[in-house]
Amino acid sequence: MVQLLIYLAIVLLIVAVSQLARVFELASALKGGLKNKPTEKDNRVNGRLWMVYLISFFAFIIWQFINYGPRTLPEAASESGVKLDWLFNFNMVIIFIVFVITHILLFFFAFKYYGRDKNRATFFPHNNKLELIWTSVPAAVLAVIIFLGLKLWSEITTPANDKTSEVIEIYTKQFDFTIRYAGTDNTLGKANYKLVQGANVLGLDSADANGHDDKIVKGELHLPKNKEISFKIRSQDVIHSVYFPYHRAQMNSVPGMTTMIHFKPTITTAEMRKKLKDDKFDYYILCNKICGTSHYAMKCLVVVDTPEEYAAWLKKQPEFMPSTAVTGGTAIAEPKKDEKGM
């Protein structure tokens, strides 16, 4: 149906345009002369259209804020995310003011000074005072923006203290996420990509005792509320991006290196469901760097628990090389559905 309409529209448009052109040709042949020079009427009509555009453009933007605004991401669910949102909004207000003022001036001038046959423009080639103002004012505003931005940036990127925070590894490959918890020693064991084989999906080095109590879980990330989480991020194949939209955190996973981010979740999944009045709400990690055919489907469920729930859930996950294991083999958990959420 849609394509039929499109075809029809194209055909009609071409017919209309060619007819239109013929009319123009005939009309101008009658008038003679410089038919493609703008007349005063052209200037007036287009000048007014700029005002119409200005008003409808702003109306369209307001409509979008009302309609689409509530559908943007909800309040940040991490400590640094809250600060980031504040600064984001602060900058947005500044740029919005600049946007509105300049657009009113631009379109209003285009309307007010449309060409009249009797008029003559004012010769005004430059003015040092004006130019000084609009060089120094933006410079001063930018100084504030840069200062606040870099202050927050250095706060967010100062490496986490791995002794006091929960260390978790996120391992990406086409097209899923695997999570490794550091276990009771809170230290991740060494890994080597050449050891990735069979069940050892992360290539853990069994000679490193630190890795024996590590817990590997596929496709589901649990986090305790109000605890700093230190993420170590690795990739198996291409560059992916670990994007926590609700926590305002993002870091690429790059084959050949370990990247890091950290944040402190402040709202559990259950609390967020209550706030949004949406029983089905879940946090997610999305892949946000083009990584192949199924890039669009690469995601990982994130569950933020209370510290107690988190401890209980983690306890149930098997260790990589349990010291008491009979088989001595490796274990990778597939999360059970009923453990989701709460």
Binding site: T102, F109, A110, Y113, G115, R120, A121, T122, L130
Partner: peptide, 14 residues
């Protein structure tokens, strides 16, 4: 700003 000021008090031929 310079573009906008160029329009100011012009005799704009559209």
């Amino acid at each position: 700003f310079n573009y906008i000021t160029t329009l100011w008090k012009g005799n704009i031929q559209f």
